[in-house]
Design a protein around this nucleic acid. Structure first.
Lengths: 202, 202
DNA sequence: GGAATACTTGACCGATCGGTCTACATCGGG
DNA sequence: CCCGATGTAGACCGATCGGTCAAGTATTCC
């Protein structure tokens, strides 16, 4: 009953792109509506507020990216190669965005959390959730790597946290220097942190 | 000639605090003026624009923090202890801000760069400059550590970059989880990255 | 003791902000 | 075929945004 529409979906896409390439505060509701080809009345039909749209946008993006994560962290893939793929994934995304937008955009989660972390608790919690999800993938790969004696055994959660933090830092560097090639060092930094004892088997 | 005033200084302090604990976009010129006890007209007497104030604010903060950096990276201090002190410095600042403001605020450079990196090139460049300065301190300490055979010899710039990125990532983590104790792992992560061969002398 | 300079004051500006509201178009189910 | 539900349209709102301006006050130099 009632008519149907993909306006909600278009709003989610437009908002994510605009916020990622600019910032939450500098992107207006009108601007998002324009890009999505949606009128303001419709916007507030689908989302109670701009902040709610932001939340929904990030949840939506995660849902879309999730298959990629599941694939690169598939148990079929050798554990250390999963982590390599993860590095390559991050680098690929940043390069792609830099090419499309002409500027390295950094990690969207870091961007939003940096801007609104102290002002919107819901949003901060959501970003923390994404970070936790990312670290869960890493942790699982690390456990498998330890089990296969590819890396020294130790607390995988702690190590996952280190790797994750390192990746965020490298993305910030790339953004600040507006140079995606700064991310080339990420994989080797990760390897170093892992203290890899054997070369990656396959 | 003409009257004198510390309004400029008060504006710089107020602006830095407000922007650090909130965000550039969410802090208005009026708000900064209120906190500084300065009227808007005076604001625009000292700064041509809000963006220029932000620039000046960060430069000013660096100038104030510089003695701390010079002290903790003094050649008199054993190289690896310099790096330990640097970690402690970061943790201390974040704890202090969290206590004062009730929220972990993260690295002010990362915050601003994340928010405005794609929108204001001058500002992005300035943040890059600060990152470069920080890495210069680290590089020098690392070179000394290598010279003293405290850590394996290799490219100190690359290593400094890793350490720096790691520290940024940990600060983002702490902010996102609003938990300064997340930074406790920073020092050990840094040590791990350094692959320290000997315990710290002295 | 001017005159020039440095700073203060507060009213004011147009633009834009996030958000509301009402009338209307379009659909599916009975 | 019509009714109720869903989505669209766009004018409208008060608040706030960054920024301007003209007039006034303090200070120092000559």
């Amino acid at each position: 009953m009632g008519r149907t529409s993909d306006a909600r979906e278009r709003l989610l896409e437009a908002a994510f792109d605009l916020i990622w390439t600019n910032s939450y505060g500098s992107v207006g509701v009108d601007q998002i509506c324009d890009k999505a080809g949606v009128k303001k009345g419709s916007f507030y039909h689908f989302f109670p507020s701009k902040a709610d749209l932001a939340l929904a946008t990030f949840e939506d993006q995660w849902a879309k990216r999730r298959p990629d994560f599941d694939a690169m962290f598939s148990p079929v893939v050798p554990p250390l190669e999963r982590i390599d793929r993860w590095c390559a994934f991050i680098v690929g995304i940043q390069r792609d965005m830099a090419k499309r937008f002409g500027q390295v955009c950094g990690c969207p989660f870091v961007n939003l959390a940096s801007e609104l972390g102290t002002r919107d608790e819901r949003l901060r919690d959501k970003m923390a959730e994404f970070f936790a999800r990312g670290q869960r993938y890493l942790r699982s790969a690390l456990r498998d790597a330890m089990d296969a004696r590819l890396i020294p055994a130790e607390d995988p959660a702690r190590l996952a946290r280190m790797l994750h933090a390192l990746s965020l830092g490298y993305q910030v560097h790339a953004k600040v220097e507006n140079d995606a090639s700064r991310l080339d060092g990420l994989a080797s930094a990760v390897r170093r942190l892992l203290d890899v004892r054997e070369t990656i088997a396959d």
